[in-house]
Every structure is written in C-alpha cells, then in structure tokens.
Write a protein that binds this DNA or RNA. Structure first.
Length: 829
RNA sequence: GCCCGGGUGGUGGAAUGGUAGACACGAGGGACUUAAAAUCCCUUAGCCGCAAGGCUGUGUGGGUUCGACUCCCACCCUGGGCACCA
C-alpha cells in the first residue's frame, strides 16, 4: 500500500505546469543560456520504451536543476516522423502513414507528459509536417546550389526487402541495418550529398568537442583517413597484336617501403582496365571470373576472410625501379570502391597478399623490410625461416607476413634505410619519374540520400527534356507528398504512380517535364532539427539566424550510441555546410554528448518482443507512479552503463518516496524544531553531494545521498519546515510531482520548479570530529575519534599510546609513521 | 585481427591511492497484529571461534608504494563497435 495517491497528484501538477507554462524557455537574453537536447524519437506504434525514459529522465534532471540555478534553458521535443515502419504498416493495413504517425505521436506526447518531462511543448516539431519538410527541401536546394548535392550513376547498396537504396552508413556487415536482409550492389542513378569534401574537417573537429571517446573513435574509423602513395605501374609492353595497347595501372599503398617485395599487381574485378588489358589467351577465364564475382553479394565476398580467389590476366607491368615484369591479376579481395581499385601484392609484408600468393603459388619475394631479428622468407615456400629463439620464433609461428616497419633489405639503393626514411626517398624518386605521388584516401563515401519510398520529403528537382535537371524554385516549396499513390513497393518510388505529382511543367521553359519521384533519406530531416527548435514557427526561414545564434550550439546532447556514424556524423556535416554558407556562427552542433546506457531485460539480455522481456513504461507508471519510474531508472546504475531491469528493485524507490511523504507530513502537522547541528551538517553534505553528482551524471549516488539523509531525518525529532523545503528542492528534479505537492503543503504558492537551487556551506559539510584509522604495517588495527584538524604530533602520540597498537609494535622498532590528516595513521615497524 | 568499455557479496551497484562492499533489492530473525499487509528494529562477503578476536578476500600472476579495487607489466574471461580500406 502506497502512502499517497500518486495518480491524483501527478495529473494535477502536469495540468498545472502546462497551464502556467512552467517549463518553457524564456525570450530573455540577459540570463545564461543552456540548450539541452534529447535525440528526438521515431514515433513508433510500440510507444515509449524504458530506454527512452532513461535518456529523457537524465536530461530532465539536468534541465530542472539548471533552471532552478537561474539559467535560461531550452529543452525542446519533437518527432522524427518520416520513415519506413509507417509505410510498411500502410502496406499491411491500408492506413495512411500520415494517419498512423499522427496517432503514434499523440501517444508519445501523452506518455511524455504523463512522466512529467519539462519539455518546451510550444516548440514541438514534426519532420513530416509540410511546414518542416519545406525547409528540408530548401536545404537540399542550398546544397545543390553550392555543388554539394549531385546526381550520379554509381554502384549503390540495394535492399530487396525494403525496396530501396541505402547509404553506406545504413549497411551493417553487408546487411540492411533495418531489416537485416542481405544488401546487393546495383548500378543506379541517385542523389548524393558531398560529405567527402568535409572529411578532414569532420576529423579535426572531433578534437574540440566533449564526446565519449568511443563515438569519436567510431567516427574516425568511419572516415578512415589513410596516408599513402599512389604508384603508377606502366605496361611498356611488346605488342603482339593491334588490340594490345600500352596502359598504366595506379595502385594505392600505405607501405611504399615494401615496393621491392611486390609479386604482382591485383585489380578489382570491376576495374575498368580489366577488359582492356586482358590477353586473348586469358580473356575467357577472366570474363568468367568477373561474372562470378559480380554474382556474389557483398556478404559472400567479404565473408570468406582469408580464402582468396583470383585469376591472371596475362598482362604484365614494369616495376618502377627494377624494370622487372610484374604479372597483373584480378581478385575479388581487392575493392573497386577504395583507393584506385588496384593494389600491389607484397606477400612478405601483408597477410592478405600472403594468403593470395600462397594459394596460387605466386613468386614470393623475400623480406624487404626487417626488424633485424626476424628470419627471411624461405624461397618458394614463403615461410619465415632461420628465426631462432624468442621474438623471431614467435613471429615465425604466427606465420606469414611481417607487417611491422623496420629497416630495408634487398631494396636496391634504398637498402639500409628505415621504413620512414625509405617512404620519403621513394616518393621523391617516384615523383621525379612521374611514377608516383603522395595521396590521402578515405573510407568515407558520399552520402546517398535517394530513397525509392513514399514516406519522406520529396526531392525538389524536375527533369525537363529540354533543360535537363531543374531545381524547384524556392517559391514553389514545399513539394507536397501526394495522396493518390500505391504504397506497394515495386522498386520504383510510389510517387511515380501519382499523375498529379509526377507530370509537371518545367519551371524554366514551361514544357512538359516530370518530377523526381524519390524521397530523401530521413536522416536528412534529423540533420538540422536542432536548429528548427530555435524558431519553430518561422514561416519565412528554415531557422532564424538570430535565434540560432542565441541558443546554439547545443550544450548537452543526450541519446543512444547507435547513431555514431549516422545522425551524429550527418548533423556535423550539415552544420559545417551551413557555417560555410554564413547562416550560422559555429561549426560543431553538439558541444557535449552523453550516451545513456541501454536498459536491459531482467536476465541482462537486450529487451525484445521475441524474448518477451519488454518492460512497458506505461504499466510501470500505472503501478508505481511516474516519480518512482523516473527515479528508479536513475537509481539502477551509472547513467552511461547498460543495466538490467529489476521489477523487485523499484519498491526501494517506492518506499523512499512514501517515507518522504510521511516525514514532510509530520513536519506540516507537528511543531518540529529546526534541524539540530548533526542533521544540519548532514543536510549541507547532502546538498553538496546531490549538486555535484547531477553535474557529473552520477544520478544513482545522488539518490543514495538523499536516502541517507532521509533515513536520518525521519528518525530524528528535529528538522522542520526549512529542512523540508531544502530537501524537496533537491528531490524536485528527480521526482517533480511529489516534490511539488509537498512544497505546496508546506504553504508555498509558487512552483518549486521556479525556486532557487539550494546552496551549501562548505564549513558545515565538514565534521568536527573525525574517525582516524590506525594501521600497523598497512593493516587496520583500531580507530580514534579526534577533533578535525588535530595536530600531527598529538595524533602520533595518541596512536602510539593505543592499547591495541601497543600489542602490535611491542618489541619492534618503529621505522616510520605516516599521517594523513583526518584520515589515517600508518605505523611501519 | 583492430578500436573502445567492463570483471567487486545471493542481486543492482558504491568507493579513482587512505576503514572494500555506501545506498537499494533479496534473504534470515524479531516487534506490532486475532491474522495478514504495511511499518519499525537487528543480522547479512567467506572461513575459524562460545566470545573477545583472528585470518582470507575486488578475474589470474607479477611489480611500484608506508598503504593498491584504484597506478604499471603480462595473461584470462566478457560486453560493444569496426573489419579483405592495401
């Protein structure tokens, strides 16, 4: 049985706060601003998840405390409302995505309000609202005008089950991140955003922002900057027939120092030179191999690990230094999309090359870079031999290639140089022959934003037979999504089915034209939503530069880590583009990022429908109240760690809140004296602990401190209205409803959310009497109660006079006494 | 393979060089009650001991230090991310 009716007081105060606009940001530039943002949710049919609650409650606590401290805080919420699930639901049920999305949003909003999150509701934003996506389209045109949006035919990722192309970032291990279906490569004409132009800025910017190292590392890896050398291998071939022309192959390598170990040059099967260079003798086998490689999915090609396949082309190229003939092969372990689509194969110094060379019995050149200890590769076998003991033997066992740097051997004029020196010298030598130069490559690809689906913002482009690609004039925005469409996916956008949409007049020449029928990736919507919140009702601009300059960048961004190389990378890219366009005065959108830890099921496994271990926050709130739910999630463990749900554990928080209720009521109804010295000191300690812990996101230990205080206070006969008021202010960010109710029962009129955050007196957080631990040789033997700040000599005397201590030091020589003031004394004998 | 984390009671977790296990759950015992619920009080790392007390203990093995969960080295296990990027 609960001690109070949380249902009644929670809904009462939620209505009251909404009526009085208690939680809004103010248009007041005289106070310090603070912009806290939760990643906005996709409003799914399943409603809010306890993981959402974790994230939102953490942000809400920070926000409420900062507001009480006098900051002008912006804390908005909105909906990432476009996306596939709504469309898939429409295919199944016939309900229009706009309709199901609106219903889901209503449910999400109801849930959020029922949990008392202090969002600035008048700023609510919905990406599927024409008033929003009009500006998403406007931003696309801005990119287009600046040469940052382009259409290109390229091999792209296609998901057959979602019936659309995907960005590289949306492919996980060769499968669609959404449906886990295998992704295939297709050559299609698609729209791209030129994110690669920002590779270095996206990389460098990471150094200046306060984000988890993990996310930064993921972005660095994803951008994948790699410095190396592009080497040109020339054919200089002796022509056997007219069809055989001279050619040259560029390869990219980060290890030009191993150039004297090259066994062959390997092209990706898709490399454009393949058809040109293959000799008549090998044309059939090469053609067969290329066909077979293209039939393989990404998953098959990358899944085979070290089992390399390939075929020779019959062609040869000249080694740039020795002039030796180097055979040219094709193999599908070489990626067409990275570097030049061709590599030099150096079996002695690269494990993949080693595997390839071994399989096909290619000539394996001996080690050309050595650490001076390792043995050489045994001619022909490729095994490292003659290593001897220790280091060398170990390396031999692990086999294969020596991939570290060292000193060059058997490398002509470069022999004897270190790898680093050799790289410089070789680049110089290659450059003078025009056979090579330094080159930087990136893993990052341009962002493919076309989607062959309905429920997204239409790409504002018109194709005219006469004028070609024509951007929709700004005055004609938004390009509205039509309603007369067939949702069943056919591989073409459902928008092509709409005649009213598809057939238009060219804005330039007035002739017959057709609209681009693809929509944009929903990640485009979410790349700028944090700007829209600053002036959500602006009908003239995507955002007001004035308001954005006031509120942005976002000071604190809280959300899941799953967006590391998606939303979090794209938003940074958008921000840089808008900065360059002179529209915003900053280059990084989110100064500090915190990832909440995942809330796991009771067994410690991920919550999932199939496991049947999903906890519904509505159920928990109905049974325990919103305050208990919020507070329990904060108490479960460290905010950033994954933690399992424990249905039994929440009663601890119930009991705590009940005890708060009883204790404050006792204060209200009896004439309790104000806190005595001991309780007052504990209160000051608690104020400090809670204040500091909130700033450090250590909500669990802040709650623990409040529990400790309450346990003492409820037992004490002292601690009146003043104590109660201070305590309730500390509690208010965590459990806003009960705090508000009791605050009013104490006789206050104004909302506790508008009160001032309590301060602590540093002197009162220190005890007058401290427990001093006595150790002998580092082992705990006894303790002393002494006045704080007691003199060191005096403490030593007391310790040596201690009866227990005497027993341990009797007959031994005291070598040293270590005294740490007010903490410990260690006697070394 | 590479890059981040993490390993502490029956459980969630505290403690970032100074009394390991705060706080909470669970469990055991007691009070109140005709009874139950609720509440309150006590016990709760392990081992030895009637007790006073002692010994052991933070994944494993070493090291630094008066003192190590905390710092250093090596290893084991585990969660997550990336992965034929040349």
């Amino acid at each position: 049985m609960r001690k109070y009716d949380y249902r009644k007081i929670e809904s009462k105060w939620q209505e009251e706060w909404e009526r009085n606009g208690t939680t809004g940001a103010e248009d007041d530039s005289s106070r310090r601003k603070f912009y806290v943002l939760n990643m906005f949710p996709y409003p799914s049919g399943a409603g809010l998840h306890v993981g959402h609650v974790e994230s939102y409650a953490g942000a809400d606590i920070i926000v409420r405390k900062r507001r009480m401290e006098g900051w002008n805080v912006l804390f908005p919420m909105g909906w990432d409302a476009f996306g596939l699930p709504a469309e898939n639901y429409a295919i199944k049920s016939g309900v229009h995505p706009a309709e199901s999305t609106a219903a889901n949003i209503d449910n999400f909003r109801r849930q959020m309000k029922s949990l008392g999150f202090a969002y600035d509701w008048p700023r609510e934003t919905n990406t599927s609202d024409p008033a929003y996506y009009r500006w998403t389209q406007w931003l696309f045109l801005l990119f287009y005008k600046n040469g940052l949006a382009y259409r290109d035919k390229a091999p792209v990722n296609w998901c057959d089950s979602c019936q659309t192309v995907l960005a590289n970032e949306q492919v996980e291990g060769g499968a669609c991140e959404r449906c886990k279906n295998e992704v295939v490569q297709k050559d299609l004409e698609q729209w791209f955003l030129r994110i690669t132009e920002f590779s270095d800025r996206l990389l460098d910017g990471l150094d200046g922002i306060d984000w988890p190292e993990k996310i930064k590392a993921m972005q660095r890896n994803w951008i994948g900057r790699s410095e190396g050398v592009e080497i040109v291998f020339r054919s200089e071939r002796v022509r056997k027939s007219e069809s055989e022309k001279d050619f040259s192959i560029s390869v990219f390598t980060t290890r030009v120092d191993t150039l004297f170990g090259v066994s062959c040059v390997v092209l990706a099967p898709e490399h454009p030179l393949v058809k040109e260079i293959v000799t008549d003798e090998h044309r059939a086998t090469v053609g067969e191999y290329v066909k077979q490689a293209q039939g393989k999915s990404e998953l098959e090609r990358t899944g085979t690990e070290l089992d390399k396949t390939g075929v020779p082309t019959g062609a040869t190229v000249k080694h740039p230094f020795t002039g030796e003939d180097i055979p040219v092969w094709i193999a599908d372990y070489v990626l067409a999309t990275y570097g030049t689509g061709a590599v030099m194969c150096v079996p002695a110094h690269d494990e993949r090359d080693y595997g390839f060379a071994e399989k096909y019995g290619l000539e394996v050149k001996e080690v050309v870079v050595s650490d001076g200890e390792s043995g050489k590769l045994e001619a022909g076998s490729g095994k490292i031999v003659g290593g001897g003991e220790g280091e060398k033997g170990r390396r031999g066992e692990m086999g294969q290639a020596f991939i570290e740097k060292g000193r060059l051997v058997d490398s002509g004029e470069f022999s004897g140089l270190t790898s680093e020196e050799a790289i410089d010298k070789m680049v110089e030598a290659l450059a003078s022959k025009k056979l090579g130069e330094k080159k930087v490559n990136y893993h990052l690809r341009d962002w493919l934003i076309s989607r062959q689906r309905y429920w997204g913002p239409p790409i504002p482009i018109i194709y005219c037979d006469k004028c070609g690609e024509v951007p929709v004039p700004e005055k004609d925005l938004p390009v509205l999504l039509p309603d007369d469409v067939d949702f069943n996916p056919t591989g073409e956008s459902p928008l092509t089915a709409s005649k009213t949409f598809h057939d238009v007049k060219c804005p330039k020449c007035g002739g017959d034209a057709r609209r681009e029928s693809d929509t944009m990736d929903t990640f485009v919507d979410s790349s700028w939503y944090f700007l829209r919140y600053c002036s959500p009702h602006d009908g003239e601009h995507a955002f007001s530069s004035h308001d954005v300059a006031r509120w942005c960048p976002v000071d604190l961004y809280i959300g899941g880590a799953e967006h590391a190389v998606l939303h979090l990378l794209y938003s940074r890219f958008f921000t840089m583009v808008l900065y360059d366009a002179g529209l915003i005065p900053f280059e990084e959108p989110f100064l500090k990022l915190i990832n909440q830890g995942m809330v796991l099921g009771e067994g410690g496994e991920k919550m999932s429908k199939s496991k049947g271990n999903v906890i519904n926050p509505d159920d928990v709130a109905a049974e325990h109240g919103a305050d208990s739910l919020r507070m329990y999630e904060m108490f479960m463990g460290e905010f950033e760690d994954a933690k399992p749900w424990d249905t039994q554990g929440i009663v601890g928080v119930d009991r705590f809140l009940d005890k708060v209720w009883m204790t404050v009521h006792d204060v209200v109804h009896t004439e309790r004296p104000e806190a005595d010295d001991a309780l007052d000191r504990l209160l000051h300690k608690t104020v400090r602990k809670v204040s500091e812990d909130i700033e450090a996101f250590k909500f669990n230990t802040a709650i623990s401190a409040m529990m400790i205080f309450l346990n003492e206070w409820s037992k004490s006969a002292t601690g009146g209205r003043e104590t109660a008021g201070t305590f309730l202010k500390l509690l208010a960010p965590y459990a806003p409803h009960i705090a508000e109710e009791l605050w009013h029962e104490l006789g206050n009129e104004k909302s506790i959310a508008l009160e001032e955050w309590p301060k602590w007196d540093e002197a009162l957080t220190k005890d007058e009497v401290v427990t001093l631990v006595i150790q002998v040789n580092g082992k705990l033997r006894d303790s002393l109660e002494v006045a704080a700040g007691e003199d060191e000599e005096r403490v030593k005397e007391m310790a040596l006079a201690n009866e227990k201590v005497k027993g341990y030091i009797e007959g031994k020589e005291v070598k040293r006494i270590v005294v740490i003031q007010d903490k410990i004394i260690n006697i070394v004998v």
